[in-house]
């Protein structure tokens, strides 16, 4: 029987699941995910993690508990430190395996390899081969699986660049379906406005925590652009305009995406989605707001979600914002 490896369906899942899944599948393991976030995952997480953590971390605990319930043999909880050679992930990502290990009991073995490309060439490969070894895979198989995983990652990334949102791209990846639907097939209606939705992918693309933000927008006839859809190279090449660059990968990315969009234009409004209790966002949100104000007249709104966010509140705020944008656009035209 192949070993069953559990991959929690949140945080980096939205960007790296295809890589991880391909790798484990190719070394002969069976990959189990915790599925979409639901009320249970949230309640679980709230109980097990602590009251002071941000919602996404609580949710991660919920997803891990779901996997434990499913009886997986291993849990893949990598310690992802740095993948671009420049910025690191939020300190909570860095301490993730430790939090899981020391808070939860009766855990299956953790595969908590450390991924930090700053350790030199081959660091990533070493991390994966360590994960492979934990499952008893030998090197030729590991090397081959790694190669396939990297390719899967590239294909997935290309989908994002083509305009698909991560959940759509994951759907395509999972069903191995040929790319038939056009990007943003959610957006059936004629779109009149384009909003940039910036923030962490595990918030924006989690229908449950974001209270269906992207769907709502699409129903309102608004096209959403996320940082994942923006051309990667120009984004990375944005000049550092803060005295000190933001240390954290996703925060840095959101800031650069703001810079990029202000320069390129093409969006009518910018929404920053942030999680209640998020440390980095306290800074990021203010920096983004000031940047938008300084450099443009594009309306900016930050939306905070927490475990109690309700449909109604979200809809009201979105509608009010959209109205304001429309009025502004009308006045300008």
């Amino acid at each position: 029987m192949p070993a069953r490896v559990g991959i929690p369906g949140t945080l980096l899942y939205y960007l790296y699941f295809p890589v991880w899944e391909t790798f484990f599948r190719n070394i002969g393991a069976e990959v189990v995910t915790s599925g979409k976030t639901n009320k249970k995952a949230l309640d679980y997480g709230v109980k097990e993690a602590l009251a002071d953590a941000c919602v996404p971390i609580k949710l991660y605990f919920g997803h891990v508990l779901n996997l434990i319930e499913k009886g997986v043999d291993y849990l893949f909880v990598p310690r992802v430190v740095c993948l671009n050679g420049e910025t690191t992930y939020c300190p909570k990502f860095l301490g993730l395996p430790d939090m899981i290990r020391h808070v939860l009991t009766d855990l299956p073995p953790l595969i908590d390899v450390r991924m930090d490309v700053r350790e030199g060439t081959g660091a990533l490969y070493r991390a994966y081969s360590e994960a492979g070894r934990a499952l008893g895979a030998k090197w030729p198989a590991v090397a081959q699986a790694y190669g396939k995983a990297i390719l899967a990652g590239r294909r997935f990334f290309a989908l994002l660049q083509a305009g698909y949102q991560p959940p759509e791209a994951l759907e395509i990846f999972k069903n191995k379906s040929a790319v038939q639907k056009s990007p943003g097939h959610f957006h059936r209606n004629k779109t009149e406005l384009v909003f940039a939705i910036l923030g962490y992918p595990y918030l924006i693309h989690d229908q449950f925590v974001s209270v269906g933000l992207l769907n709502k927008l699409s129903k309102m006839g608004i096209k959403a652009v996320t940082a994942e859809n923006l051309p990667a190279k120009p984004l990375a090449r944005q000049p550092h305009i803060l005295d000190k660059r933001l240390f954290w990968t996703f925060s840095d990315l959101a800031y650069k995406a703001t810079q990029f969009l202000l320069q390129r234009g093409g969006v009518d409004g910018i929404i920053h989605l942030t999680a209640f209790g998020c440390g980095p966002d306290a800074m990021l949100d203010k920096f983004m707001e000031m940047l938008v104000k300084e450099r443009s007249s594009i309306p900016f709104m930050s939306l905070t979600v927490d475990e109690h966010s309700g449909e109604a509140g979200m809809t009201t705020r979105l509608e009010a914002f959209a109205d304001m944008v429309r009025r502004k656009k009308g006045a300008a035209a």
């Binding site: 953590a53 909570k92 301490g95 020391h102």
Partner: peptide, 17 residues
Amino acid sequence: PFTCIPEIVARTILPRV
């Protein structure tokens, strides 16, 4: 401090310690 990132991580681990 409330929302202090590294201390929240520490706080999660301290009960085990």
